[in-house]
Computed example of a mutant assay.
Amino acid sequence: MRTIAALFFMAVYSPTLADTVVATRAIRAQTILTEQDLAIRPLETAGAYTDPGLLVGLETRLALYPDKPVRPGDVGPAAIVDRNQTVLLVYTSGGLKITTEARALGRGGVGEHLRVLNLASRMTVAGKIQPDGSVLVK
C-alpha cells in the first residue's frame, strides 16, 4: 500500500521541466549572441533565461559552454567602452555642466555603471555609460 501511495505521490507531484536557454556551442567571452548560438532544452534551472529572443544581440561576459544554461550574469549589453579607453566624463547639476577626460577602469555597455579615473584630479569616480560613450556622474 505504501508503495502505491509513493508512486502516486511521485507521479502527481514530480517537478515539471521548464524550458531553459542553453548555448549550442562553446562561445567565447565578448561575443555578440545570435539565434544560432542559442537553443531551448527541457531543464529545471532556477534563474536561467527561458526566452532566447531576450538574448539575441547581447554580449557574453564570460565563456558559455554547450548545453549549459545561460543566466543573467553571463550576458549584458554590447560594450561600447573598453578598459583604458579615454572617455568624456560629464557631471550635471541644475544648470551646471562640467566635462573632463577620464580613463575607463573596465568595459561596459549603454546603461551599465563604470568606474573611471578622472585624468585631471586623479580621483576615481563611478558613473553610467551613455549612448554616445560618455560617462555621466551624478
Rank of each mutant, 00 (worst) to 15 (best):
L96N: 03
L96V: 03
K97P: 00
K97D: 00
K97G: 00
K97H: 01
K97L: 00
I98Q: 00
T99V: 14
T99M: 09
T99I: 03
T100E: 04
T100M: 02
T100G: 10
T100V: 00
T100F: 00
E101V: 02
E101D: 14
E101T: 10
E101R: 09
E101P: 01
A102K: 03
A104Q: 11
L105N: 14
L105H: 08
L105D: 08
L105T: 07
G106P: 04
G106M: 06
G106S: 15
R107Y: 10
R107D: 05
G108F: 03
G109P: 02
G109E: 06
G109A: 04
V110H: 12
G111M: 04
G111L: 13
G111V: 04
G111W: 11
G111C: 11
E112C: 08
E112A: 12
E112Q: 15
E112G: 02
H113N: 11
H113Y: 04
L114Q: 05
L114F: 11
L114R: 07
R115C: 01
V116T: 13
V116M: 05
V116I: 14
L117V: 02
L117W: 03
L117I: 07
N118W: 09
N118P: 06
N118A: 10
L119V: 12
L119S: 11
L119G: 07
A120V: 06
A120K: 13
A120L: 02
A120C: 01
A120Y: 09
A120Q: 13
S121M: 05
S121V: 02
S121Y: 02
R122M: 13
R122I: 07
R122A: 11
R122V: 08
M123Q: 13
M123P: 00
M123L: 08
M123T: 08
T124S: 10
T124E: 14
V125P: 02
V125E: 15
V125Y: 10
V125S: 05
V125A: 12
A126D: 15
A126R: 14
A126E: 15
A126H: 09
G127N: 02
G127C: 03
G127V: 01
G127A: 02
G127Y: 03
K128H: 10
K128V: 15
I129K: 13
Q130S: 13
Q130T: 11
Q130N: 15
Q130H: 15
P131I: 02
D132F: 01
D132L: 01
G133I: 05
G133V: 08
G133M: 07
